[in-house]
Amino acid sequence: MTYPSDTPPFLASDHLSRRTHDILTARLEEDASAVPRTLSTTAFTVLERLVSVLLPQEDILGQQTLNLALRVDMALSGPRDGWRFAELPPDIQAWEQALLTLSDLSISQFDRPFSQLEDNAVEIFLDGMGEGKVGLDAPRRLTPPQMQKWALDLRADVIECFLADPRVQDRLGMSANLNGGDERFQGFETVQANEREDFEPVTKISSAA
C-alpha cells in the first residue's frame, strides 16, 4: 500500500491493529471534501474563527492544517459522549445557539461579522465566555452562564478532534495507538523514561515546560 507524503509512517506499523489502522486512515480524509452538515453557515463561520484562535494548528502541523471546524461539525452529528450540561439544550442546538450568540455580539459590539474580528477580539470573547461574561438573554441564544458551560464543551470537542488525527499524533510523538497488533499483541517492551522503542514516533514539537 502507498501513502500520500503527509501520511504518518506509523500507520504501516504491525504494532497497530487493523481496526485502529482503518479508523485512523479514514480520519485522514475526514475533512477532504465535505461541507458543514450540522451547523448553519453563519454559525460555522463563527466556529472557524474561534477555532483558529483557540488552537493555532500551524504551530504543530505547519501549513498542512486540518479543517478542524468541519471535523467538529461532523462530530456533532455523530455519537456523542453520553451526557450534557443540564443547563444547555441538546448539543446541536446548543452549539448553533452559542455560535449565533457570538455572531450577534460581534455585530452589536464591533459592527462586523465574527469571522472578521481581530485575534485580540476573539481572545477577549474566549476569555469572557470562561468567566461567564459573554451571552445574551434572548430567544434561541445562550445566556452568560450557559455560554460558560458551552465554552467547556467547545474546548473539549476541538481538542479531541485535533488529537484524534494521526498526523497530529505523529508530530507530537504519540504512540498510544501503537499498543499492539493483531498477529501479535505486543504492548510495550519498555515503559521506562527516555527509552523509545523503534516503532514509536519521535516527538517533533517542543513543549511548554
Binding site: L54, P56, L152, I159, F162, A164, L172, M174, A176, A208
Partner: peptide, 30 residues
C-alpha cells in the same frame, strides 16, 4: 493517561488557549 482523555481533562479543567494551549498539548510525552 491516554492522550485524548488527558487532553479533554485539560480542556475542561483549564482556560489555556492559543500558543499556550498548543505548547501544553505538545508536552504530552513529558
Amino acid at each position: 493517561m491516554m492522550p485524548l482523555t488527558w487532553a479533554s481533562n485539560i480542556a475542561r479543567g483549564s482556560t489555556r488557549r492559543g500558543a499556550d494551549l498548543v505548547r501544553t498539548l505538545a508536552g504530552y510525552n513529558r
